[in-house]
Design a protein around this nucleic acid. Structure first.
Lengths: 192, 192
DNA sequence: TGTACATCAGTGAACGCGCGTTCACTGATGTAC
DNA sequence: TGTACATCAGTGAACGCGCGTTCACTGATGTAC
């Protein structure tokens, strides 16, 4: 068993990655020091060599989860060209995204939790919300901040609802319906 | 201190009401036997005379919270006439609703929690989602289930986002923007 | 390059605490005569 | 209506458990000569 400095950095990274995955899959409140350390095959005592406290880990895991979610969105939508926005919307409201919150958009997964969290956590997510709105506004072809707000609300609402609904067909229908509506918004924006 | 049967029923009611308020304000995971009993000025030991277990209380409090939220929506939108839908939307995306999750729509507040809960809890919320969609479809003037799905997604997404955003002006703007969009959808539906 | 020592990443026992749950007890309530 | 007794709603101490956190210890790593 090695204890080198390089390994320490790697372990910190593994703890943070596991924590980010955990909160995306099960929410902020589900994060435990013991369970995270077990997941990365370390003992709980070592945790405090990496983080000041559990709430320190939660804060960093939240930032990480949001950053990963944004990166996943960027990656899945491909190169920036005419079809990029449509691909991004299709990916966002896909069954794959609905069924894999752990590797998906953390804004959607955690917005409910963050809505009742402290001001600092809300500010962290707020930045990602603004980036998201800006990206959508661009995808809609211009200055339409308002349309982007509507589209983001619909995307997040639909993804969340699709994860609540147990009837798969109905859940699929929610995704499809809102997807088509948001794609049509792009058409409208272009035509204007 | 009385221990009559009538008082027992009243106490059960008070426990359930406090629990429903608690989960609407702070989420499903925030509910504790001790804290709820303290809130209604009883001791924790008596809890098991009213409920089988904590998870029994959670299940009933969830149903209660959803029912109360739906009733609040119905009450605030007034009598069923032409302006009813517009009033309901304005109320839903109002600052008052944003700032008082405890007495507001539990679908919006708890959807994120429920999305990762067991199938039974999801089925309980699912019914309320379907009722909600049906009510909106009616408000939009007819058979437009698809438009209602879009509207509900936007309503829930916008309310949740408005609670995340710390900048009050920006939060107000989210509410206003989506409100206008949903009201315009009604106009569109009527004109069709 | 090889030895001697300090550093420090990770271990695992121990801590206090709050949780959900149980239970013997209490005294007011409701009932039988 | 009044008394005698059973019921049972609520009390509060106690339980085991898992949590976050601390700490003395270990042995491999990294450093100084």
């Amino acid at each position: 068993m090695g204890h080198s400095q390089a390994e320490k950095a790697r372990n910190r990274e593994r703890i943070l990655a596991a924590a980010a995955g955990q909160i995306r899959a099960q929410g902020l409140a589900s994060l435990g020091v013991g369970s995270v350390m077990r997941k990365v095959k370390l003992t709980h005592g070592g945790f405090y060599g990496h983080f000041d406290s559990k709430s320190d880990l939660v804060a960093q895991a939240l930032a990480r989860a949001l950053a990963e979610g944004a990166a996943a969105g960027r990656a899945s939508s491909g190169p920036a060209n005419a079809g990029r926005f449509a691909r991004a919307v299709r990916g966002y409201l896909s069954r794959a995204h609905r069924d894999n919150p752990k590797s998906g958009c953390a804004v959607a997964t955690l917005a409910g939790d963050i809505a009742r969290a402290d001001r600092r956590s809300r500010a962290v997510m707020e930045k990602h919300v603004e980036n998201f709105i800006a990206a959508i506004a661009q995808g809609l072809g211009g200055e339409s901040d308002g349309a982007a707000i509507v589209a983001l609300s619909a995307l997040i609402g639909a993804l969340t609802l699709s994860r609540v609904v147990t009837d798969r067909k109905r859940s699929d229908e929610i995704l499809r319906t809102v997807r088509d509506h948001v794609l049509a918004m792009q058409g409208d924006a272009r035509r204007t």
